[in-house]
């Protein structure tokens, strides 16, 4: 059994420690907000926070997580809307299909936690998640809005 601290709750899971954290979150714990896109840490759809650092969970063996605190999109804010990034995403109507947005929001939240006033270049560097609908410009605008609202 492996004990996982997800969104402040400890889950006991009976799973091969080599299993990627993504699939443990989705299939063993049953939380599906974190998405599968590529399986090789390229697209970022599976982004979660591990001890505050944005991490592509598809490439993290669950056995290496230990007692670290994992936060998924479901745990970013109590009501799913009140984190400054979520509010800015709503204000700018960022999502189109929405499939990548859990990962985008987690990446943006981690960026702002570390760098409350990111420049466009900082955003280019930090936000490498793939969006096939092409919401990048609205993501950029929304990050600046979230940055302003949080200060």
């Amino acid at each position: 059994m492996i004990a996982l601290n997800i969104n402040g709750q400890v889950h006991q899971v009976d799973v091969d420690p080599e299993t990627p954290l993504l699939w443990v979150i989705r299939e063993w714990v049953g939380m599906t907000g974190t998405k599968f896109g590529c399986g090789i840490a390229q697209c970022g759809a599976c982004s979660v926070h591990i001890d505050g650092a944005v991490t592509r969970s598809c490439s993290v063996p669950v056995g290496t997580v230990g007692a670290s605190k994992i936060v998924t999109i479901e745990g970013l804010s109590a009501d799913g809307l009140s984190h400054p990034v979520q509010r800015a995403w709503l204000a700018h109507e960022v999502p189109q299909c929405g499939y990548c947005q859990s990962g985008q929001i987690m990446a943006a939240a981690a960026l702002l936690a570390q760098n409350p006033k990111p420049s466009d270049a900082d955003i280019d560097d930090a936000m490498s998640n793939i969006c096939r609908c092409g919401t990048y410009n609205r993501i950029r605008t929304a990050i600046h809005t979230a940055s302003a609202s949080a200060s």
Partner: peptide, 21 residues
């Protein structure tokens, strides 16, 4: 006007087919 399908896409609550249980 605002889209009718935005809110659930911000919280991970939108159920895509891949999420069906």
């Amino acid at each position: 006007v605002k889209r009718l399908d935005t809110v659930e896409k911000l919280s991970g609550k939108q159920i895509f087919a891949i999420d069906v249980q």
